[in-house]
């Protein structure tokens, strides 16, 4: 069975770094630790959520069906298999992820700057 913990620290770090960048760019540095963590956790969740939306939008019907199949194999899809799936159904998903996040990140920052 896929062990998520042997694969994901880098991804998590990147997402955390990204959340930190959002915080920084929003001028929300220097919060008390509890508030900082609250904000970061929420931002990570929303980034993860948007990432999922981008992926879902590009998988197509067959891709989504395959994704469900992947989940039938374990609690989370094996990233390697998921990557193969993305390559199959959305070979240029890297650009799409970038485009999607390029749109979302400024929105996040703007929301927090208001």
């Amino acid at each position: 069975m896929f062990n998520p913990f042997s694969h994901q620290s880098a991804g998590a770090d990147s997402l955390e770094n990204l959340a930190e960048e959002v915080i920084k760019q929003s001028g929300l540095e220097g919060l008390p630790a509890g508030d900082h963590k609250f904000l970061k956790d929420n931002l990570i969740a929303q980034l993860e959520r948007r990432l999922g939306q981008i992926m879902a939008a590009n998988l197509g019907e067959d891709g989504l069906a395959d994704y469900e199949q992947l989940l039938a194999e374990g609690p989370t899809a094996d990233p390697a298999k998921f990557e193969a799936l993305m390559n199959k159904y959305s070979p240029n998903y890297q650009a799409k992820v970038k485009a999607g996040l390029d749109e979302f990140i400024p929105q996040m920052v703007e929301s927090l700057r208001k």
């Binding site: 998520p4 694969h7 994901q8 991804g11 998590a12 990147s14 997402l15 969740a45 980034l47 993860e48 959520r49 948007r50 990432l51 999922g52 939306q53 981008i54 992926m55 879902a56 994704y67 989370t76 899809a77 990233p79 998921f82 990557e83 993305m86 992820v97």
Partner: peptide
Amino acid sequence: FVGLGFVARQV
């Protein structure tokens, strides 16, 4: 979607 993103971010 969070779940999907959770997997995606590991790619």
